[in-house]
Design a protein around this nucleic acid. Structure first.
Lengths: 160, 160
DNA sequence: ACTACTTAGTTCTACTGTCTAACTATTCGA
DNA sequence: TCGAATAGTTAGACAGTAGAACTAAGTAGT
């Protein structure tokens, strides 16, 4: 077993990753939560945000992207629709499909929170040299690709 | 404004970070969820895991570490205690304090899930050169330190 | 054209995690 | 000893989640 030390090395790296991940995620979530206005949760903001980038979407697509069941999406969308941030429209060509878009108020709200979120992230990022940040994010993107590729393991396929 | 391009650079990095973060977190959570046995949620596993590393803890410490209110901890601990994974004991020297430890069954369960989680993470990590992984994790740890330091902004202090 | 299957989305029910406020029990301090 | 502080729990509310049953709409086979 000449690769014993290699295995231990991996184990060590995993352990370090887990610790850092735990801290970063908890803290980031807490910071985000503090930036939310009273009428919005972090999850609701993420949904609105996706719609702002995407322009429009459907419940099925959101369920796929967010990795949750469609009934969860219905619940979130209904709350956001009640608050007047999201509009539901039927697709002309296939009336089963629901088209989701932001209302003007939704767009405004999203932009104003977005600005604060970016400022917060910029604050954090300023603790790093540009080169280190660039390298970190590049690896992070590679990780995202790997994870997206490992999709098969996600096994949310064919649900509902 | 000679640093306009610098600001844009930061903005670009932030945007890339946000996209990668979103993908990685959603996927990681989905993978984790799939590793959980029927009787445990991901959050419950995280709590058990912390106790395994820490040996023992108290509701107050858990609330601090996990960044939530003490009543949330009571709820989670009660469920885990009902299932026989966690034991509640009163501290001799100050009977207000509750000491939390894992039962033997809790330890066993944690170890078996842990093995699977590590295998899953090792799988992902094998997509990277050791040097890149090492550098990534180092920056990640630095980020964790920065976030922990930014604690003041977390504003969960003095809650309850 | 009629029937059966599929797909998109919603509704209903149940559970977990969360917060806040009110409460109990214990300790500390003046 | 009495009042304040501390540790934890309880109760009530709500968001997010899953799963099963449901509606509405489109698709295919015959």
């Amino acid at each position: 077993m000449s690769n014993n030390c290699h295995g231990d090395m991996i184990k060590e790296l995993i352990h370090r990753y887990e610790r850092a991940h735990f801290t970063v995620e908890r803290k980031l979530y807490a910071l985000l939560r503090d930036l939310m206005p009273a009428e919005l949760t972090v999850d609701q903001f993420n949904m609105i945000r996706f719609l702002q980038f995407n322009g429009r979407s459907t419940p099925s697509e959101l369920a796929e992207v967010f990795g949750v069941g469609k009934s969860s999406i219905t619940a979130i969308i209904s709350r956001l629709s009640d608050k007047g941030f999201i509009r539901r429209l039927s697709e002309e060509s296939d009336r089963r499909i629901v088209i989701l878009t932001l209302t003007e108020e939704g767009k405004r709200l999203c932009e104003s929170i977005d600005a604060r979120v970016e400022a917060m992230l910029a604050d954090i990022m300023n603790h790093f040299e540009e080169e280190e940040a660039e390298r970190f994010i590049s690896t992070f993107e590679k990780l995202a690709d790997v994870m997206a590729g490992t999709a098969g393991l996600g096994s949310n396929e064919g649900k509902e």
